[in-house]
């Protein structure tokens, strides 16, 4: 346990000292502000463009903006959050493999599994903090501007979107622990996501696919029932556990 805590501390210290933690917190904080801000500014922007659009024959009725508009924006921006966090951690194993920094630690008798586990924990912990930071900032501003800041279904939708990040990160780390290149790990993760996304074309499969966990907006609007998304949540949990185990296998097989 002491070894795992020491390794986890090292990972977190790396995030802080290399300024990556700061960058992530700032960007995810900005995401949080952006969601309600965009919703708030939408009527103003449309009125700016209104005249020129009217000349082309496009006219608007009265635009109502409410808490739901802000949450719509939140779910639209999720993809950027996933890409950012995946890009940030794609080289977490490769940089150690390439520079040989793990050799000193492993020759102290540390098991490779603990090294993998410390990285998995550090990455998921970072994602948890970043994701819920964006959520809370969005929630705060939404509550400030509009009533009913927490529409029915928001918690389940938010947890599902969070789990999609957990699933994607554990998938990326499973690739990363077996490869010497962060870029390949990122591309393969993108490839698997695209594959799941393509499978989603079959309507009977959609509710089981973790790639659709970010589509929870329907829960807020009433277009979707919780039974439409819960199976995918369980699948994402099972896959995340399996992929984390594969990440440990990957580092064990790695020749250093």
């Amino acid at each position: 346990m002491r070894q795992l805590l020491l390794l986890l501390r090292k990972e977190l210290l790396e995030l802080v000292r290399t300024k990556r933690a700061m960058v992530l917190l700032i960007v995810f904080g900005i995401f949080g502000i952006l969601n309600p801000a965009l919703a708030k500014l939408t009527p103003w922007m449309l009125s700016l463009m209104g005249e020129s659009l009217a000349e082309q024959g496009i006219t608007f009725g009265a635009i109502t903006v409410d808490a739901l508009t802000s949450w719509t924006q939140y779910f639209k921006n999720l993809m950027m959050e996933y890409i950012l966090i995946l890009a940030m951690f794609s080289s977490i194993f490769a940089q150690e493999y390439q520079s040989g920094t793990l050799v000193n630690l492993l020759t102290k008798g540390v098991s490779r599994g603990k090294v993998a586990l410390s990285k998995l924990l550090a990455v998921q912990l970072t994602w948890t903090v970043c994701y819920w930071l964006t959520f809370l900032v969005t929630l705060g501003y939404t509550a400030y501007f509009w009533e009913n800041a927490l529409p029915a279904g928001i918690w389940l939708a938010a947890v599902c979107a969070y789990m999609m990040g957990v699933w994607l990160l554990s998938l990326e780390l499973a690739f990363a622990s077996a490869l010497n290149s962060g870029m390949y790990a990122l591309l393969l993760t993108g490839g698997v996501f695209a594959l799941f996304f393509a499978l989603g074309m079959l309507p009977q499969l959609t509710r089981f696919l973790p790639s659709h966990l970010g589509d929870g907006l329907g829960l807020l609007t009433g277009d979707m029932a919780s039974s439409d998304i819960l199976p995918a949540l369980w699948v994402s949990l099972a896959l995340s556990a399996t992929q984390s185990a594969l990440c440990v296998v990957g580092i064990r097989k790695k020749q250093l």
């Binding site: 210290l13 790396e14 040989g100 920094t101 050799v103 000193n104």
Partner: peptide, 9 residues
């Protein structure tokens, strides 16, 4: 190791 590598931070 011949060229020991460390965490620079």
């Amino acid at each position: 190791p011949d060229v020991p590598e460390f965490y620079g931070y």
